[in-house]
């Protein structure tokens, strides 16, 4: 059994495994970074670490707009990343078998697969895919 945290951003429903999340914060002030790319909102100071805040929909060229001040801090061995999201829902306990049968999707914008859950489709994000896509984008934009 795995635990999934569903959340919304840019009108879409996304999901992340709890094992990929370090922390959820909601009141950290975002510091504006001059010269940052469009998808980077700024940086926050989390327990003494300076972490970049990414606006994924803006990053992938959709729906450039204000995000709620709720942020999900991703856990990564190399470098921590913060996603600015709209809302965070309650944690879902999903059977591992069900999670594994989630439909694979073409390698696209960090989404590893689609999970059907109670009439809704959750786009499951994969940190590896997401990280590769973001790095790819950054290289393309020269950042």
């Amino acid at each position: 059994m795995i635990q999934i945290l569903p959340f919304t951003m840019g009108g879409g429903l996304y999901g992340l495994s709890l094992t990929d999340i370090q922390e959820v914060v909601d009141d950290a002030p975002i510091h504006y970074l001059p010269g940052a790319p469009v998808g980077i909102l700024g940086a926050i100071n989390l327990h003494g670490r300076i972490l970049p805040v990414v606006d994924l929909p803006a990053q992938f060229g959709h729906d450039v707009g204000p995000r709620a001040e709720r942020m999900i801090v991703l856990s990564n061995a190399k470098s921590a990343l913060v996603l600015a999201v709209d809302t965070v829902r309650s944690v879902l306990n999903v059977e591992a078998a069900l999670a594994e049968v989630c439909r694979p999707v073409a390698d696209q914008e960090g989404v590893a697969g689609l999970l059907d859950w109670k009439g809704e489709t959750i786009r499951m994000l994969s940190l590896e895919v997401l990280w590769e896509d973001i790095r790819h984008l950054c290289e393309m934009s020269g950042g």
Binding site: L5, L18, T19, V24, D26, V91
Partner: peptide, 16 residues
């Protein structure tokens, strides 16, 4: 809300 967030983070910590 804060409690809820704390509980969420606690759940995340527990999962980790």
């Amino acid at each position: 809300q804060k409690t809820n967030l704390l509980a969420l983070n606690a759940t995340i910590e527990a999962a980790r």
